[in-house]
Write a protein that binds this DNA or RNA. Structure first.
Lengths: 157, 157
DNA sequence: AACCACTGCTTGATTGGTCAAGCAAATATC
DNA sequence: GATATTTGCTTGACCAATCAAGCAGTGGTT
Protein backbone atom coordinates (compact mmCIF):
# COMPACT_ATOMS: atom_id res chain seq x y z
CA UNK A 1 0.00 0.00 0.00
CA UNK A 2 2.99 2.29 -0.24
CA UNK A 3 2.31 2.96 -3.89
CA UNK A 4 0.18 6.09 -4.02
CA UNK A 5 -1.26 5.23 -7.41
CA UNK A 6 -2.80 1.99 -6.26
CA UNK A 7 -4.08 3.03 -2.86
CA UNK A 8 -7.06 5.33 -2.43
CA UNK A 9 -5.50 8.20 -0.55
CA UNK A 10 -7.10 10.32 2.09
CA UNK A 11 -9.04 13.11 0.34
CA UNK A 12 -8.24 16.70 1.18
CA UNK A 13 -9.87 18.32 4.15
CA UNK A 14 -12.05 21.28 3.49
CA UNK A 15 -9.37 23.79 4.51
CA UNK A 16 -6.72 22.05 2.49
CA UNK A 17 -8.91 22.12 -0.56
CA UNK A 18 -9.66 25.81 -0.09
CA UNK A 19 -5.96 26.54 0.21
CA UNK A 20 -5.07 24.59 -2.89
CA UNK A 21 -7.76 26.27 -4.93
CA UNK A 22 -6.73 29.68 -3.65
CA UNK A 23 -3.13 29.04 -4.58
CA UNK A 24 -4.19 27.95 -8.03
CA UNK A 25 -6.02 31.20 -8.45
CA UNK A 26 -3.15 33.31 -7.20
CA UNK A 27 -0.71 31.65 -9.54
CA UNK A 28 -2.88 32.63 -12.48
CA UNK A 29 -4.03 36.02 -11.39
CA UNK A 30 -1.07 37.55 -9.60
CA UNK A 31 1.49 37.80 -12.40
CA UNK A 32 -1.05 39.27 -14.78
CA UNK A 33 -2.27 41.70 -12.17
CA UNK A 34 1.24 42.89 -11.44
CA UNK A 35 1.99 43.16 -15.13
CA UNK A 36 -1.19 45.09 -15.64
CA UNK A 37 -0.38 47.52 -12.85
CA UNK A 38 2.76 48.49 -14.66
CA UNK A 39 1.10 49.23 -17.95
CA UNK A 40 1.53 52.85 -18.83
CA UNK A 41 4.85 54.03 -20.14
CA UNK A 42 6.62 52.21 -17.37
CA UNK A 43 5.35 48.95 -18.74
CA UNK A 44 7.88 46.18 -18.51
CA UNK A 45 6.83 42.53 -18.61
CA UNK A 46 7.55 40.70 -15.42
CA UNK A 47 10.19 38.44 -16.93
CA UNK A 48 12.15 41.34 -18.33
CA UNK A 49 11.76 43.28 -15.13
CA UNK A 50 13.13 40.38 -13.14
CA UNK A 51 16.13 40.09 -15.42
CA UNK A 52 16.98 43.78 -15.13
CA UNK A 53 16.43 43.64 -11.39
CA UNK A 54 18.83 40.77 -10.92
CA UNK A 55 21.45 42.40 -13.07
CA UNK A 56 21.21 45.62 -11.13
CA UNK A 57 21.87 43.86 -7.85
CA UNK A 58 25.24 42.67 -9.00
CA UNK A 59 28.34 44.76 -8.22
CA UNK A 60 29.27 45.43 -11.84
CA UNK A 61 25.79 45.04 -13.31
CA UNK A 62 26.65 41.99 -15.30
CA UNK A 63 26.01 38.29 -15.06
CA UNK A 64 26.56 35.09 -16.99
CA UNK A 65 23.52 33.81 -18.87
CA UNK A 66 23.45 30.62 -16.90
CA UNK A 67 23.34 32.21 -13.52
CA UNK A 68 20.82 34.82 -14.55
CA UNK A 69 18.56 32.14 -15.97
CA UNK A 70 18.62 30.39 -12.63
CA UNK A 71 17.71 33.52 -10.71
CA UNK A 72 14.89 34.32 -13.11
CA UNK A 73 13.54 30.76 -12.96
CA UNK A 74 13.90 30.49 -16.68
CA UNK A 75 15.46 27.90 -18.96
CA UNK A 76 18.70 28.93 -20.58
CA UNK A 77 17.05 29.30 -23.94
CA UNK A 78 14.30 31.34 -22.38
CA UNK A 79 16.98 33.59 -20.95
CA UNK A 80 18.66 33.92 -24.33
CA UNK A 81 15.41 35.16 -25.80
CA UNK A 82 14.65 37.50 -22.96
CA UNK A 83 18.08 39.09 -23.19
CA UNK A 84 17.72 39.39 -26.94
CA UNK A 85 14.48 41.25 -26.42
CA UNK A 86 16.10 43.55 -23.90
CA UNK A 87 19.10 44.06 -26.14
CA UNK A 88 17.01 45.30 -29.02
CA UNK A 89 15.53 47.86 -26.64
CA UNK A 90 19.02 48.90 -25.66
CA UNK A 91 18.46 48.03 -22.01
CA UNK A 92 21.09 45.32 -21.90
CA UNK A 93 24.08 44.44 -24.03
CA UNK A 94 26.07 41.25 -24.41
CA UNK A 95 29.77 41.12 -23.72
CA UNK A 96 32.01 38.18 -24.20
CA UNK A 97 33.25 36.74 -20.99
CA UNK A 98 36.94 37.44 -20.54
CA UNK A 99 38.00 34.34 -18.70
CA UNK A 100 36.01 31.98 -20.92
CA UNK A 101 35.34 32.92 -24.51
CA UNK A 102 32.31 30.67 -24.87
CA UNK A 103 30.53 32.55 -22.15
CA UNK A 104 28.63 35.80 -22.38
CA UNK A 105 27.74 38.39 -19.84
CA UNK A 106 24.46 40.20 -19.93
CA UNK A 107 25.34 43.76 -19.00
CA UNK A 108 22.82 46.31 -17.79
CA UNK A 109 23.24 49.50 -19.81
CA UNK A 110 22.68 52.96 -18.39
CA UNK A 111 19.42 53.08 -20.31
CA UNK A 112 18.47 49.79 -18.72
CA UNK A 113 19.28 51.07 -15.28
CA UNK A 114 17.24 54.19 -15.87
CA UNK A 115 14.34 52.10 -17.14
CA UNK A 116 14.47 49.96 -14.06
CA UNK A 117 14.51 53.00 -11.81
CA UNK A 118 11.40 54.14 -13.57
CA UNK A 119 9.59 50.83 -13.31
CA UNK A 120 10.66 49.98 -9.82
CA UNK A 121 8.25 52.09 -7.77
CA UNK A 122 5.14 50.91 -9.54
CA UNK A 123 6.31 47.34 -9.42
CA UNK A 124 6.94 47.61 -5.73
CA UNK A 125 3.57 49.21 -5.13
CA UNK A 126 1.88 46.44 -7.08
CA UNK A 127 3.62 43.75 -5.07
CA UNK A 128 2.54 45.36 -1.85
CA UNK A 129 -1.01 45.95 -2.90
CA UNK A 130 -1.63 42.68 -4.66
CA UNK A 131 0.27 40.39 -2.40
CA UNK A 132 2.02 41.49 0.78
CA UNK A 133 -0.88 43.51 2.05
CA UNK A 134 -2.95 40.37 2.37
CA UNK A 135 -0.48 38.68 4.69
CA UNK A 136 -0.26 41.31 7.34
CA UNK A 137 -1.11 39.16 10.32
CA UNK A 138 1.40 36.46 9.41
CA UNK A 139 4.90 35.60 10.45
CA UNK A 140 6.48 36.42 7.13
CA UNK A 141 9.78 34.72 7.79
CA UNK A 142 8.07 31.47 8.68
CA UNK A 143 5.87 31.78 5.62
CA UNK A 144 8.85 32.42 3.40
CA UNK A 145 10.54 29.32 4.73
CA UNK A 146 7.47 27.24 3.95
CA UNK A 147 7.39 28.56 0.42
CA UNK A 148 11.04 27.92 -0.10
CA UNK A 149 10.42 24.29 0.75
CA UNK A 150 7.35 23.98 -1.45
CA UNK A 151 7.88 22.59 -4.92
CA UNK A 152 10.73 20.49 -3.67
CA UNK A 153 9.88 16.93 -2.79
CA UNK A 154 10.79 16.62 0.81
CA UNK A 155 11.23 13.08 2.05
CA UNK A 156 7.70 11.81 2.24
CA UNK A 157 7.55 10.59 5.83
CA UNK B 1 3.17 62.47 -2.82
CA UNK B 2 0.24 60.11 -2.97
CA UNK B 3 1.20 59.00 -6.46
CA UNK B 4 3.28 55.86 -5.97
CA UNK B 5 5.02 56.31 -9.30
CA UNK B 6 6.52 59.66 -8.42
CA UNK B 7 7.40 59.07 -4.77
CA UNK B 8 10.23 56.81 -3.75
CA UNK B 9 8.36 54.14 -1.86
CA UNK B 10 9.56 52.30 1.18
CA UNK B 11 11.71 49.37 0.04
CA UNK B 12 10.78 45.86 1.11
CA UNK B 13 11.95 44.57 4.43
CA UNK B 14 14.18 41.57 4.42
CA UNK B 15 11.35 39.17 5.29
CA UNK B 16 9.06 40.67 2.71
CA UNK B 17 11.69 40.29 0.07
CA UNK B 18 12.33 36.69 1.01
CA UNK B 19 8.62 35.96 0.82
CA UNK B 20 8.21 37.57 -2.57
CA UNK B 21 11.18 35.71 -3.98
CA UNK B 22 9.93 32.44 -2.55
CA UNK B 23 6.52 32.97 -4.07
CA UNK B 24 8.10 33.68 -7.42
CA UNK B 25 9.94 30.43 -7.22
CA UNK B 26 6.90 28.44 -6.18
CA UNK B 27 4.86 29.82 -9.03
CA UNK B 28 7.42 28.56 -11.49
CA UNK B 29 8.36 25.30 -9.89
CA UNK B 30 5.17 23.94 -8.41
CA UNK B 31 3.05 23.39 -11.52
CA UNK B 32 5.90 21.67 -13.31
CA UNK B 33 6.68 19.54 -10.31
CA UNK B 34 3.08 18.43 -9.99
CA UNK B 35 2.89 17.75 -13.70
CA UNK B 36 6.10 15.80 -13.54
CA UNK B 37 4.87 13.67 -10.67
CA UNK B 38 2.01 12.49 -12.80
CA UNK B 39 4.13 11.57 -15.77
CA UNK B 40 4.88 8.22 -14.20
CA UNK B 41 1.58 6.43 -14.45
CA UNK B 42 -1.04 8.59 -15.95
CA UNK B 43 0.23 11.80 -17.36
CA UNK B 44 -2.41 14.47 -17.62
CA UNK B 45 -1.35 18.10 -17.94
CA UNK B 46 -2.50 20.23 -15.05
CA UNK B 47 -4.86 22.32 -17.16
CA UNK B 48 -6.63 19.28 -18.54
CA UNK B 49 -6.74 17.68 -15.15
CA UNK B 50 -8.37 20.76 -13.69
CA UNK B 51 -10.99 20.81 -16.41
CA UNK B 52 -11.92 17.17 -15.88
CA UNK B 53 -11.92 17.69 -12.14
CA UNK B 54 -14.35 20.58 -12.32
CA UNK B 55 -16.63 18.72 -14.68
CA UNK B 56 -16.70 15.71 -12.40
CA UNK B 57 -17.85 17.79 -9.47
CA UNK B 58 -20.97 18.85 -11.23
CA UNK B 59 -24.18 16.83 -10.71
CA UNK B 60 -24.59 15.78 -14.34
CA UNK B 61 -20.94 16.05 -15.31
CA UNK B 62 -21.43 18.91 -17.70
CA UNK B 63 -20.80 22.60 -17.72
CA UNK B 64 -21.01 25.59 -20.03
CA UNK B 65 -17.74 26.69 -21.56
CA UNK B 66 -17.91 30.07 -19.94
CA UNK B 67 -18.34 28.81 -16.43
CA UNK B 68 -15.71 26.12 -16.80
CA UNK B 69 -13.24 28.67 -18.12
CA UNK B 70 -13.79 30.73 -15.01
CA UNK B 71 -13.21 27.82 -12.68
CA UNK B 72 -10.08 26.79 -14.53
CA UNK B 73 -8.73 30.36 -14.54
CA UNK B 74 -8.50 30.25 -18.30
CA UNK B 75 -9.66 32.58 -21.03
CA UNK B 76 -12.63 31.39 -23.02
CA UNK B 77 -10.51 30.67 -26.05
CA UNK B 78 -8.02 28.85 -23.88
CA UNK B 79 -10.90 26.72 -22.65
CA UNK B 80 -12.06 26.05 -26.19
CA UNK B 81 -8.63 24.68 -27.00
CA UNK B 82 -8.35 22.63 -23.86
CA UNK B 83 -11.73 21.02 -24.45
CA UNK B 84 -10.81 20.36 -28.07
CA UNK B 85 -7.71 18.56 -26.86
CA UNK B 86 -9.73 16.52 -24.40
CA UNK B 87 -12.36 15.79 -27.00
CA UNK B 88 -9.87 14.27 -29.42
CA UNK B 89 -8.80 11.98 -26.60
CA UNK B 90 -12.42 11.03 -26.04
CA UNK B 91 -12.40 12.26 -22.46
CA UNK B 92 -14.99 14.96 -23.02
CA UNK B 93 -17.62 15.61 -25.64
CA UNK B 94 -19.51 18.72 -26.63
CA UNK B 95 -23.27 18.91 -26.53
CA UNK B 96 -25.41 21.78 -27.62
CA UNK B 97 -27.05 23.55 -24.79
CA UNK B 98 -30.78 22.86 -24.81
CA UNK B 99 -32.04 26.14 -23.48
CA UNK B 100 -29.72 28.27 -25.60
CA UNK B 101 -28.60 26.98 -28.94
CA UNK B 102 -25.51 29.14 -29.13
CA UNK B 103 -24.19 27.58 -25.97
CA UNK B 104 -22.27 24.35 -25.58
CA UNK B 105 -21.79 22.05 -22.68
CA UNK B 106 -18.56 20.24 -22.10
CA UNK B 107 -19.62 16.79 -20.94
CA UNK B 108 -17.34 14.38 -19.14
CA UNK B 109 -17.48 11.00 -20.87
CA UNK B 110 -17.18 7.71 -19.04
CA UNK B 111 -13.69 7.40 -20.42
CA UNK B 112 -12.93 10.83 -19.05
CA UNK B 113 -14.28 9.90 -15.66
CA UNK B 114 -12.21 6.74 -15.63
CA UNK B 115 -9.12 8.70 -16.65
CA UNK B 116 -9.68 11.14 -13.85
CA UNK B 117 -10.10 8.33 -11.33
CA UNK B 118 -6.79 7.00 -12.52
CA UNK B 119 -4.98 10.31 -12.29
CA UNK B 120 -6.55 11.51 -9.10
CA UNK B 121 -4.51 9.64 -6.51
CA UNK B 122 -1.14 10.62 -7.88
CA UNK B 123 -2.26 14.19 -8.33
CA UNK B 124 -3.43 14.30 -4.78
CA UNK B 125 -0.21 12.77 -3.51
CA UNK B 126 1.77 15.35 -5.47
CA UNK B 127 -0.21 18.22 -4.01
CA UNK B 128 0.35 16.95 -0.52
CA UNK B 129 4.02 16.26 -0.96
CA UNK B 130 4.94 19.33 -2.93
CA UNK B 131 2.74 21.85 -1.22
CA UNK B 132 0.53 21.07 1.75
CA UNK B 133 3.20 19.21 3.63
CA UNK B 134 5.22 22.39 3.93
CA UNK B 135 2.44 24.28 5.67
CA UNK B 136 1.80 21.93 8.52
CA UNK B 137 2.19 24.39 11.36
CA UNK B 138 -0.12 26.97 9.77
CA UNK B 139 -3.72 27.92 10.18
CA UNK B 140 -4.80 26.73 6.76
CA UNK B 141 -8.13 28.49 6.77
CA UNK B 142 -6.54 31.82 7.55
CA UNK B 143 -3.92 31.21 4.91
CA UNK B 144 -6.55 30.32 2.35
CA UNK B 145 -8.38 33.54 3.07
CA UNK B 146 -5.22 35.55 2.56
CA UNK B 147 -4.63 33.87 -0.78
CA UNK B 148 -8.16 34.43 -1.90
CA UNK B 149 -7.64 38.12 -1.34
CA UNK B 150 -4.27 38.20 -3.08
CA UNK B 151 -4.26 39.20 -6.73
CA UNK B 152 -7.28 41.37 -6.16
CA UNK B 153 -6.53 45.02 -5.58
CA UNK B 154 -7.99 45.72 -2.22
CA UNK B 155 -8.55 49.40 -1.48
CA UNK B 156 -5.09 50.57 -0.62
CA UNK B 157 -5.71 52.20 2.72
C1' DA C 1 49.86 18.89 -31.21
C1' DA C 2 45.78 16.30 -32.54
C1' DC C 3 41.85 14.41 -31.00
C1' DC C 4 37.59 14.01 -28.16
C1' DA C 5 34.29 14.75 -24.76
C1' DC C 6 32.24 18.60 -22.41
C1' DT C 7 30.42 23.24 -21.61
C1' DG C 8 27.95 27.68 -22.65
C1' DC C 9 24.99 29.62 -25.39
C1' DT C 10 21.85 29.97 -29.53
C1' DT C 11 18.47 28.29 -32.80
C1' DG C 12 14.49 25.51 -34.67
C1' DA C 13 10.29 23.20 -33.80
C1' DT C 14 6.54 22.76 -30.88
C1' DT C 15 3.33 23.88 -27.19
C1' DG C 16 -0.15 26.23 -24.66
C1' DG C 17 -1.67 30.34 -23.69
C1' DT C 18 -3.56 35.41 -25.03
C1' DC C 19 -6.27 38.94 -27.65
C1' DA C 20 -9.01 40.34 -31.55
C1' DA C 21 -11.95 39.19 -35.26
C1' DG C 22 -15.59 36.24 -36.92
C1' DC C 23 -19.93 33.56 -36.99
C1' DA C 24 -24.33 31.90 -35.45
C1' DA C 25 -28.10 32.21 -32.31
C1' DA C 26 -30.83 35.22 -29.19
C1' DT C 27 -32.86 39.42 -27.91
C1' DA C 28 -34.20 44.15 -28.24
C1' DT C 29 -36.04 47.98 -31.03
C1' DC C 30 -38.54 50.16 -34.31
C1' DG D 1 -41.85 40.99 -38.01
C1' DA D 2 -37.39 43.00 -40.05
C1' DT D 3 -33.31 44.89 -38.54
C1' DA D 4 -29.70 45.99 -35.13
C1' DT D 5 -27.27 44.72 -31.09
C1' DT D 6 -25.55 41.50 -27.94
C1' DT D 7 -23.98 37.01 -26.44
C1' DG D 8 -21.45 32.41 -26.63
C1' DC D 9 -18.15 30.14 -28.63
C1' DT D 10 -14.46 29.32 -32.24
C1' DT D 11 -10.69 30.66 -35.13
C1' DG D 12 -6.49 33.19 -36.66
C1' DA D 13 -2.41 35.60 -35.57
C1' DC D 14 0.78 36.10 -32.23
C1' DC D 15 3.84 35.48 -28.14
C1' DA D 16 6.68 33.60 -24.62
C1' DA D 17 8.07 29.57 -22.87
C1' DT D 18 9.95 24.68 -23.45
C1' DC D 19 12.98 20.82 -25.29
C1' DA D 20 16.24 19.04 -28.48
C1' DA D 21 19.71 19.80 -31.76
C1' DG D 22 23.61 22.59 -33.23
C1' DC D 23 27.86 25.29 -32.89
C1' DA D 24 31.90 27.36 -31.02
C1' DG D 25 35.31 27.37 -27.55
C1' DT D 26 37.78 24.63 -23.56
C1' DG D 27 40.55 21.33 -21.59
C1' DG D 28 42.14 16.66 -20.71
C1' DT D 29 44.54 12.53 -22.89
C1' DT D 30 47.65 10.47 -25.71
Amino acid sequence: MADPSSATPQPLTCEEEALVRALGQVMHVLPRAIDADMVGDRQLPLTEYTALMNLSETPDRRMRMNELAGLCHLSLSGMTRTITRLETQGLVRRERCEEDARGWNAVLTDAGYARLQEAWPSHLAAVRRRFLQHFEGFDLAQLARAFQGAGTAEPTD
